[in-house]
Amino acid sequence: MNNNIVTKLQSGLGKALTYFILLSCLAILVLYLVQRFGTQYAEDKIQEQLNQSGLAPFVHYESIHLDPFTLTPSLENVSFGNENSPWLRFARISLNSYPIKYPDLNVDFWIQKSPIDSLSRETRGLMRAAGVDTLLGKGSFTSKVEGENVSSHFKLDIKDLGKLDLTSKINLLDNSIVMSDLRSDVLASFALGQPEALPIIYGDAIELHSLDVRYEESGLISHLFPPSVILQDSPENQLNRLENICQALGLAPADSEEAEHIAETLLAFLKQPKKLSLTLSPSSAISLKELALLASEGMLYKDSKMTLSND
């Protein structure tokens, strides 16, 4: 009797082990197929978007890796611009949750440690001005679409320079706008140094509901405006210079209360750089075209309900 029980146990354990091995092999095969064909699908889609946006000549990557568990594709060793001397090099760009939640977007990226001589002339110039000889950082971008409303959040942390945190809410007035095209146009306009093109292209199609920009200093401002330079001129002259800059940027007339407030806030920040916050919260959503008009009239700060604070 005991021998029969032992035999049945051995037989049962043998079958269980066999099933476990078969299921494990099947799971491995499924993961392999998901990764192989998923990677190809992701690469085709990414390349399609790059081609449609006209960014294909500027974006180069070594490979695409797909996590079979989260279906997250990642571009490995990415460069923007000329392949030999790019504007930026990224160790990895992960498109979290793509394509399950499209058109929502959730991207993490890591700027590859890049010596100044490995980057483009334009980037080298910016790095020298910022006082760094090696670029290293990380960031993220999330964007959620709900009907005509789009909420976005961008974070950037550059070693020895600073941290930038930007949150925006916009309304799309044109139902024909494709989010992938809009994002590509925004990226292309900044990549080509032409952000002023956005109000021309989308002036009547996009309304800005709110904007919140926060900067935390970790070296950039201290290098650009060292105390020795700040103390060379009188506070009165510095305030006058900053007020004239406000007028030139279309924020406020140089002799206005708004320009005075902006100048005093900026000067306090330059003397003791820690954090600076800019918010734009108009009483009702305002189009990009209207914002450009306010800037041309020198009334952007007041009429868009903009506030600047030195936290």
Rank of each mutant, 00 (worst) to 15 (best):
G81M: 11
T134A: 06
N237T: 02
S11F: 07
P115H: 10
A42I: 05
P227L: 13
H60N: 08
L164W: 13
Q232M: 12
F37V: 10
S143Q: 15
Y32C: 05
L251H: 04
P273I: 12
S189L: 12
N175Y: 03
D185A: 12
K275I: 00
E196N: 15
S79V: 14
L182Y: 09
D117Y: 11
S152P: 00
K144Y: 01
N3R: 15
R124A: 02
N175T: 11
T134W: 02
K155P: 00
S210L: 09
I286F: 00
I5R: 15
S184C: 01
S151R: 14
I245A: 13
Q10M: 11
P115K: 15
S79H: 05
A285N: 14
G38T: 07
A130E: 05
N77I: 03
L173E: 13
I201W: 06
K15E: 05
I200A: 14
L71Q: 05
I158C: 02
D212W: 07
L280S: 12
Q10F: 04
Q35H: 05
N310M: 07
W87H: 11
V107Q: 12
L239E: 14
I100K: 10
I201N: 11
F225L: 09
I206A: 07
I100E: 11
L13P: 00
A56W: 01
K101D: 08
E207R: 10
T265H: 03
A130F: 08
P57W: 06
E43T: 07
E258C: 02
L208A: 04
L166E: 04
W87T: 06
P195Y: 13
N4A: 12
N171D: 14
H261S: 02
L211N: 07
L173S: 07
N310Q: 09
A205R: 15
G54V: 04
F80K: 06
S256M: 11
K289A: 12
A91Q: 15
S114A: 08
A205L: 08
E264K: 14
F109Y: 14
E146S: 09
I201M: 13
G193E: 14
S120P: 00
D181Q: 14
G38I: 09
E76Y: 00
P86F: 09
L270A: 10
E217Y: 04
S283N: 11
L278D: 10
N51L: 13
A254Q: 15
A129V: 03
Y19H: 03
S140L: 03
I93Y: 06
A188W: 02
E43A: 02
P253G: 13
K274D: 11
E264T: 12
V145T: 12
A248N: 10
L220P: 00
I262K: 06
P227H: 14
V150F: 04
S256L: 12
A191Q: 13
L187A: 14
G81W: 11
L294F: 06
S256V: 07
E83H: 07
F190K: 11
Q247G: 05
T167I: 10
N240G: 01
A205Q: 15
E236L: 09
L242F: 02
E48S: 10
R128M: 04
G250L: 10
D185Q: 11
F154N: 05
I170E: 08
F90S: 06
I206Y: 04
I230T: 06
